[in-house]
Nucleic acid binder design. Structure first.
Lengths: 244, 244
DNA sequence: GACCCCTAGTTGTCTGACAACGTCTGCGAA
DNA sequence: TTCGCAGACGTTGTCAGACAACTAGGGGTC
């Protein structure tokens, strides 16, 4: 039989989803191939058909499989594409997955009140206190982005020392604060400006893609408001668009 | 009872999903409020609980609701956000949903072979014949984007007259050819160039966001390769990023 | 007021059955 | 042999009823 480590609070169907997701990703079921029948999956996982169908429904909504009445459930053929910008994730990870070594150089860390336009975008009171970070993000030593991040002071523990913040902000959120950004609302702009870049290579960088983004966790609490200026040409900006 | 127009090939659960989605969007069930119980929804839609659960599962995976065993199903509080760039859809629709009137002005329509770099990006033979379209897309009369679209000639019926193509390409695909673009792979760039814009306002447009995009249908057939240059500032470029 | 227990209500899972639909087999006709 | 068709069979979609797991709320006790 199938003994799965069952985490507290998790539903049976979730385990099946995770297992099948992994097997599809690992090529156990190639694109276009047919998954085992619902009855076979029932037997394998030791659950009822209702539970298997719940799991398959999730895979269907996620676009991983396509079901056809009378025929079976098939793995959706997908171009081999790593996740794009539509997936929440740290820039650090995406640089690393492209085979380069990410780096962070921190500029000023400031404690201040939000500006009026920032408050409006964040839908926060105008007296909200935030920590402002200025960073340069590098890949194999080359600057790929300049980032200006605002993080509400209320997220941090009392007696917090801003200098603890280094490296990836996502990693800090997760490891030090136990917060996981799961939703980002971004606006994309093209920008030419000589006031964004700083540091030794600043003069070379004039054309940017601006990702003006609000980060939330699963409870829709605002974690950060960041403006990240990607140096045009230095960072491959990919996006997978899907229909509903 | 509830008599719903049932489209061919659609499942019962899909109708329920659409109805509930709309009602949530219309504020019929405010954020955080509890949806009717599964039993109540069964009665309302005249279906079994299995079908209702299938529909609710879809809403759950889509992040619209949260279910809690023993308590009920609740509408997820969400920032009010319309779909962003991560959703496949025509620019025309997105302009219309922002309350403006979309328009299309067609420039040259050309029948030609693909260029080498185009063939590489399209993963197509170098002797592929395509129809090239040049369009200006407008909102309330103002140019918001210049688009250069390549569509494989093989998609068109024999004795095709390029002049039939007008208005939204997506609409033409769907209505005239029965094709539905469901997947887009895009790269995003910032571009400054004086060679992109054409027409009366060309001189005003120098800074663009380029969406360099391959369009596929559900069978993963390439429908089009388009380079759309959005005039910076004229089009609000939004993106909803989610985690897996 | 604070705490515990019990109960009614709701979602999660199980079982069994039939309907709707796709696929394949095998037979007969050309 | 080849082609077309009918029917059997397999698979997913839906239905019905039941019980398990869990939550929220009420009432009682201290």
């Amino acid at each position: 039989m199938f003994a799965m480590a069952k985490q507290a609070g998790r539903r049976l169907a979730d385990d099946i989803v995770m297992t099948l997701k992994k097997e599809v990703a690992d090529g156990h079921y190639p694109a276009g191939s047919r998954l085992p029948t619902e009855a076979a999956l029932c037997e394998r996982f030791g659950v009822s058909r209702a539970t298997v169908r719940s799991a398959l429904k999730e895979l269907h909504v996620l676009g991983l499989v396509r079901t056809q009445q009378g025929a079976g459930t098939f793995v959706t053929p997908r171009p081999t594409v790593h996740d794009g910008l539509e997936r929440m994730g740290s820039i650090t990870d995406s640089i690393r997955s492209s085979g380069k070594e990410p780096g962070h150089e921190y500029g000023r860390r400031t404690l201040r009140q939000v500006l009026p336009d920032e408050a409006e975008r964040m839908e926060a009171p105008t007296d909200t206190e935030v920590i402002e970070l200025r960073r340069r993000i590098t890949a194999d030593g080359d600057v790929v982005a300049y980032s200006y991040d605002l993080i509400p002071l209320s997220l941090f523990p009392p007696r917090f020392d801003p200098d603890e913040l280094s490296g990836s902000i996502f990693a800090y959120f997760e490891n030090a604060l136990g917060l996981r950004p799961t939703l980002g609302l971004a606006k994309v702009h093209a920008v030419t400006s000589s006031h964004i870049a700083w540091g030794p290579d600043a003069a070379k960088h004039r054309l940017f893609i601006l990702l003006d983004q609000l980060h939330y966790d699963q409870t829709h609490r605002l974690l950060a408001y960041s403006k990240t200026y990607f140096v045009e040409g230095a960072y491959e900006f990919e996006l997978v668009r899907t229909s509903k």
